[in-house]
Simulated assay, not measured.
Amino acid sequence: MAAPAKKASTDVESLVATLANRQSETPKGQKQLTGPERAAVLMLALGEQHGAKIWALLDDDELRQLSIVMSTLGTVEANLVENLLLEFVGRLSASGAILGNYDATERLLQQYLPPERVNGIMDEIRGPAGRNMWEKLANVQEEVLANYLKNEYPQTVAVVLSKLQPEHAARVLAILPEDLSLDVVNRMLRMEAVQKEVLERVEQTLRTEFMSSLSQTHRRDAHEVMAEIFNNFDRQTETRFMTSLEEANRESAERIKTLMFTFDDLVRLDSGSAQTLLRNVDKDKLAVALKGASETVREFFLGNMSSRAAKMLVDDMQSMGPVRLRDVDEAQVMLVNMAKDLAAKGEIVISKTRDEELVY
């Protein structure tokens, strides 16, 4: 019995490539499936028990294409599934309809692939975080969204912006061409309840044309990545690289400087944020960091401490004697990283660039 089972599995494996390159030959009046859709139906029909060997043979590009199709397949009628399976594997038939969605796809992939591969594939399928399309859009940078919407019909733009949070919609409107943005504002003012069918069409368009391409092409700005790298250099290394970069590409060097958040930038914290940072930092590390800081930075931190705590810190700094520059750099980087961690948790507020000021 073992040998026939193995042969059947091998035959099925060889069918995936055939499925992906053929159009569905379905009776008139029924939905016609594309090649990738036919392959997705087969894999869903095979399920966890019989599909393992096939999943293991697919490369990343094939996994990605098949997973994307599976996650958007929706419900496939049982008779269409049965016709497809009969066509390719003889007597194999389906017991009912198959539902292809994100959750089913993820559960199936988890049976055969390492968690990191599953997470990467599903992140690419889903695009930015969010349970539905409008939550996903809320996590798309306004410049990216505006660049897409500027080529859409004004009424479509109005529908999309009406579903966003006001602050996000405002930032997108401010970037759109002025004539388009004014048209969109007027349409939003006159807009009545959007029909469900219209909203579904807009969602589907965003999902297939915008989110899918965004998930495949979006990456962080290279200058932002490099600014974070520079933030973690010691002082001498940073100076060496920045000097060379200024000679080779002054524009990039200036942009990286703008995006960097350094120890000196901590003076831009408000009093509440500064005091929160001080409560979390090791006092010995703070003393070392301030030992090599400018007078402005020292006064800022001491000014956000009680008189007694400030005096004790000054005494500690005076008593420790000379400190190696490398130790100072490490302590200052530690404070900067701690500030970023606290900001990520929402416990403090830091401005993102050197030009950004906070108004109270």
Rank of each mutant, 00 (worst) to 15 (best):
L42K: 02
L277M: 13
E77W: 01
L259H: 05
G346V: 13
M122C: 08
V76A: 09
L214A: 07
A170G: 04
A129R: 13
N304W: 06
S351C: 08
L109P: 11
V16T: 09
L164A: 03
R91S: 13
H50I: 01
G90S: 10
D327A: 10
K6F: 03
Q23N: 12
T258C: 01
E124V: 02
M133H: 03
L173V: 10
A146V: 07
R126S: 14
E178W: 03
L164R: 04
R64Y: 10
A169V: 08
M1L: 07
V118I: 11
A45R: 03
E209M: 06
Q30E: 13
N21M: 07
I54H: 03
I125R: 01
P128Y: 07
L278Y: 03
E142M: 00
L335I: 02
Q204L: 09
P114S: 11
G74F: 07
N231R: 10
V281R: 00
G35Q: 10
I54K: 01
V69H: 06
S271W: 03
R117Y: 00
I229H: 09
E347G: 09
E209L: 07
D11C: 00
R187A: 13
A5P: 02
E197F: 03
W55L: 13
G127L: 07
T75W: 03
D341E: 14
A56Y: 04
A78R: 13
L145C: 12
G292I: 05
A78P: 02
W55T: 02
A2G: 14
S9Q: 14
M305A: 01
I121D: 04
V225G: 03
L189E: 15
G29A: 11
M260L: 09
V159R: 06
A309Q: 02
L57W: 00
L259N: 06
W134L: 08
D341L: 04
F210A: 13
T262E: 06
L335K: 05
D59Q: 05
A17T: 14
V172P: 05
Q65T: 12
